[in-house]
Amino acid sequence: MPDLGKYAGAILTSWAATLALVVLVIAVSWWQSARVKKKLEAAEARRKGS
């Protein structure tokens, strides 16, 4: 860990907020993608079944 001196709080808060928001947008996009993919597979299966 580098010595961040008096700016440690500002640096760590900035980086933590950035990483948290980036992880959040990735997780939301992935979750939405998986949910919609499953829903489409079910709809396509119904179409083929009918």
Binding site: V25, S29, W30, R47
Partner: peptide, 26 residues
């Protein structure tokens, strides 16, 4: 990162549109 998320999210939107079309057909 933006391009990766854009591709994932646009693919989701295309699939949603397909679901909407299939539901309308049903």
């Amino acid at each position: 990162l933006f391009i990766a998320l854009l591709l994932v999210r646009t693919r989701t939107e295309v699939r949603k549109r397909r679901i909407h079309a299939l539901e309308m057909r049903e």
